Simulated scan of single mutants.
Amino acid sequence: MVQAWYMDESTDDPRMPHRVQPDRPVGLEQLRTLGVLYWKLDADKYENDPELEKIRKDRNYSWMDIITICKDALPNYEEKIKMFFEEHLHLDEEIRYILEGSGYFDVRDKEDKWIRISMEKGDMITLPAGIYHRFTLDEKNYVKAMRLFVGEPVWTPYNRPADHFDARVQYVRFLEGRA
């Protein structure tokens, strides 16, 4: 099962867990209140997984690719890692399914505090449009992930501040219970 927790304020190596002390774990229900959805799937059968196909159909995920993030496989690795870890939002939801390796997605809670979500093989997560987030590898420095999208892919990150976008306005309304 996925693990999530509140982060400390340290600016040290982002690949470390950065758990606040005392530890403040975050459960799936709290993540759901932020619009973050989670599934545990069998990554060894992702090519023919009826459960993944059902999720894709139910959520209209029509586009898919696979990205490998490690020094040997990703062009401009250092630049991309820095870009992924820059706090940003997207105008569409972001879907990632971890096929191998591991990493962290960080999301902001309702009080603008960071929550770190530890992702490993078999974890699939959906981040809603308009949520501020970032991604980093963990100490293993390797992840292979499926990227899913509704319609054609748009990978444009809008770095914070990006509060003027309609997706952000709608997300804030959702957090306030007005969506």
Rank of each mutant, 00 (worst) to 15 (best):
K80H: 09
H90T: 02
K80L: 15
F105P: 02
E93C: 03
K113E: 14
I115W: 05
D123F: 00
E87I: 11
E111V: 12
E87F: 03
E79T: 11
D92M: 11
S118Y: 09
D112S: 12
R108K: 12
G122Y: 02
I98P: 00
R116E: 08
R96G: 00
I117Q: 08
M119T: 15
D92K: 14
Y104E: 11
E93A: 01
Y104G: 09
Y97I: 06
D92A: 13
M83R: 08
I125Q: 07
I98L: 12
M119R: 00
E93F: 12
E79C: 05
F105R: 07
D123R: 07
K82I: 08
Y77R: 05
I95A: 05
W114H: 09
E86I: 12
F85L: 00
I81H: 03
F84A: 10
F105T: 10
M124L: 15
L89T: 12
I98Q: 00
D109C: 06
E78T: 15
F84R: 11
K110E: 14
E86D: 15
K121D: 07
G103F: 04
M124W: 07
V107W: 06
E94Q: 11
R116N: 04
K82V: 07
R96C: 00
D92Q: 13
R96M: 00
M124R: 04
M119L: 11
S102D: 05
Y97D: 00
D112G: 05
I125A: 14
L99D: 01
F84L: 13
K80E: 10
F84Q: 09
M83A: 14
G101N: 04
E87D: 11
E78Y: 09
L91K: 13
L89G: 03
E86F: 06
D109N: 14
L99W: 04
E86N: 13
D123T: 10
K110I: 13
F85I: 08
Y104V: 12
L89Y: 02
K80T: 15
E100L: 09
I81S: 09
R116S: 07
E100V: 03
K121R: 13
K121C: 08
K82S: 13
I117A: 10
E100Q: 15
I117H: 04
I98W: 02
N76A: 14
M83I: 08
H90F: 04
D123K: 01
I81C: 15
E111C: 05
M124G: 05
E100I: 04
I125E: 06
D109Y: 06
H90E: 05
I115C: 08
I98G: 01
I117L: 14
R116G: 03
E93Q: 09
R116A: 07
D112E: 15
G101L: 08
I125H: 02
D112K: 13
E87S: 10
E100M: 07
H90D: 02
G122P: 02
M119P: 01
D106M: 13
E93H: 12
D92N: 13
S118K: 11
R96I: 01
V107G: 02
